[in-house]
Design a protein around this nucleic acid. Structure first.
Lengths: 369, 369
DNA sequence: GCAGTTTCGCAACAGCGTTGCCAAAGTGGA
DNA sequence: TCCACTTTGGCAACGCTGTTGCGAAACTGC
């Protein structure tokens, strides 16, 4: 999913790539930081190159020295760490009945979060006004260093243009240019993506996939969807349509699904949930997950979503039963913040070289005069 | 799926990237070639950079000028084209009962192909001897400009190490280091991959996916498998396990499959084939394909494999019936050469920047002294 | 015949990571 | 206490990348 118009790379692209890489490693290292030598080792760059890059980052205020490490027989290493407060991002989660807005710093840590009820079907004007108002409240904490806002909501939609399609249950949104409309209101760059994709991205930045690793995030809420991380990056497909896990046919010629097909996993699973048969719902989820693991050779299955989190342990156990040794199963470590946190990461990801396609114009924080 | 040990990029990596990009565009342009201005436009590089790159390619004998284009109001463009005979690659297709070896030039065009019967269960020594003998015959046509050999065979296996696992039906191969064993016999770099992955790669280089495009290649032979192309690159997964399409559960609690699960698409589909019910087999294939298209947002479904090609039109129609407008369906344009052609492309892909992970050490054809 | 357009190369350039060298700051043995 | 050794990391010079500025070449159209 490269931006195909200009796949050629010049020196500036090379510098940005390496800078993002280092910045990403610094973020992963956390408050303890990492030494220049460690960074050089992990990137494959020479120590001198790392020195130059970290020097630029320090001038830009994105990194700072953070004490000494114990010596291993020579000069002790100087730890470098990310300055989390150097920049912030807003995350917006538009759910069917609620609005959550969060402000996070560069490290992805929560600064403040506000949740309010919302009718996603109330019309564009009402929804936009609510988002704008909540964002303004949250924004005060950022102190001007705001990179942009990421918005996560149910699909289908087009994450490249930020235009919504027939959002499930709310067809009136079809064709609405959410990204541009919100960018104008907020005066900020805005990135829009499906809720499951945002969640997956957030989990990537939490380190749930190793470098070039993979996992599937299965989200069971009012519907059933998935976010796929392949080769370290979120797989969205050309039309942001990837992750339509709910309409995988699992029982040929089974019960009719609202989507028109028969035997979709969503209709089977939601039926089981409605009957209160959590074990069967988990078994269905597990069977679908096993299909994913086999098809995509995935390292890990992560579970989340409102319905599932109400009985997370039972679901996890049921899915684990079906998957066996095929892949480990875990519940999302971000809990009910999974989506909104990921929404904020939509903005930050490009800084850390974790996007391979973000709607944001390459944020050039280190462009020296 | 970057080679994670060294994601940092230096000037050499940048040059190789841009060179591969230009080389790839020249290959896609075919004998008609492309002008420097066109290449600059498509890569996003400056015309001057393209001139330097193509200059190196011409010195290396990989490209040459090929006449003038018609003027569009100014100086007419000079076409550049790939010199296909500058290098060759061997493709080896190890099937359960046959061995096919082919020699292709840089453009992927067939120079010579030899097919002979083979028992894949006859033991490593016998099989290796057969491959070595056939490769030697084919090799004579290359005139020394041989980059390496690509080997495609049924999985499971590890394409990064070239070590086989319990190849379906032939468990004796488990743990055999095919890549290294063959590399030693041939005195050439060798790349090993699953047959379906090789087929998918070959179709990518035929232009079946646009840049950053995607498709699924469904292969129905003695088994059922898939090669997945996502974002312009073959998706193999961390353990080369991706594409296990045959064991997608399609009928929950359905008939037992040799793999131990129930209702796998392979067992359903092969049953239908055995009954002579091609229409039902095609419907099953279509349902599985629809699952893929929805899950991965895929642009195109390509069909191939020995069993399918015997009645390609019927299968294509049946699959098309199920998929409807979700995605176009086509039969592999390479016919029964799909796999062996792809095997040869395993070697060539890295030259054209189409690998993102090839076992081959970056072939530095343009390294000037 | 001349202005305009388009292609493309030469030369000088800025900026990238690399190399060679050295200072700083520890450890550990004599 | 001293000294050899290891490890970290910066300075300066360097080679190589794509870029910029400029001009020659080659065609169209008035």
């Amino acid at each position: 999913m490269n931006s195909s118009p200009a796949p050629g790379a010049n020196l500036a692209a090379l510098r940005d790539h390496n800078t993002a890489l280092v910045l990403g490693l610094l973020r992963d290292a956390g408050p303890a930081g990492a030494s220049r030598a460690e960074l050089a080792d992990r990137t494959g760059l020479t120590p001198q190159a790392v020195s130059k890059i970290t020097g630029r980052l320090r001038v830009a205020g994105l990194a700072a020295e953070a004490g000494r490490r114990a010596s291993t027989g020579g000069k002790p290493a100087t730890a470098l760490r990310l300055m989390p407060e150097a920049a912030h991002a807003i995350g917006v989660h538009l759910d069917r009945d609620a609005l959550t807005v969060t402000l996070v710093d560069l490290s992805g840590a929560e600064v403040v979060t506000r949740t309010s009820p919302l009718d996603l079907g109330a019309g564009a004007e009402t929804v936009l006004a609510a988002v704008t108002a909540e964002a303004a409240r949250v924004r005060a904490e950022a102190g001007g260093s705001l990179l942009g806002a990421g918005v996560a909501l149910p699909g289908p939609l087009d994450h490249r243009t930020g235009v919504l399609h027939r959002v499930t249950g709310f067809p009136r949104w079809d064709g609405f240019p959410l990204r541009d409309a919100l960018a104008e209101r907020l005066g900020l760059p805005v990135v829009v993506d499906k809720d499951t994709n945002a969640a997956a991205l957030g989990l990537v930045l939490r380190g749930c996939a190793g470098p070039a690793g993979s996992f599937a995030y299965l989200h069971l809420g009012t519907g059933l969807g998935a976010g796929l991380v392949l080769g370290g990056a979120v797989h969205r497909g050309a039309r942001t349509g990837a992750g339509e896990f709910g309409h995988q046919v699992l029982r040929l010629d089974g019960p009719l699904c609202p989507c028109g097909d028969r035997g979709c996993i969503e209709v089977l699973c939601l039926d089981a949930v409605a009957r209160g048969d959590v074990a069967e719902a988990a078994r269905l989820l597990g069977t679908g997950a096993a299909n994913l693991v086999r098809l995509l050779d995935i390292d890990l299955v992560l579970l989340g979503g409102g319905t599932l989190l109400k009985d997370a342990a039972t679901y996890a156990a049921g899915v684990r039963d079906v998957l066996g040794a095929a892949a480990p199963v875990a519940v999302t470590p971000a809990g009910d913040r999974t989506v909104v946190e990921g929404a904020a990461e939509l903005v930050l990801a490009s800084l850390f070289g974790r996007d391979r396609l973000s709607g944001l114009p390459k944020a050039g924080l280190t462009h020296s005069p």
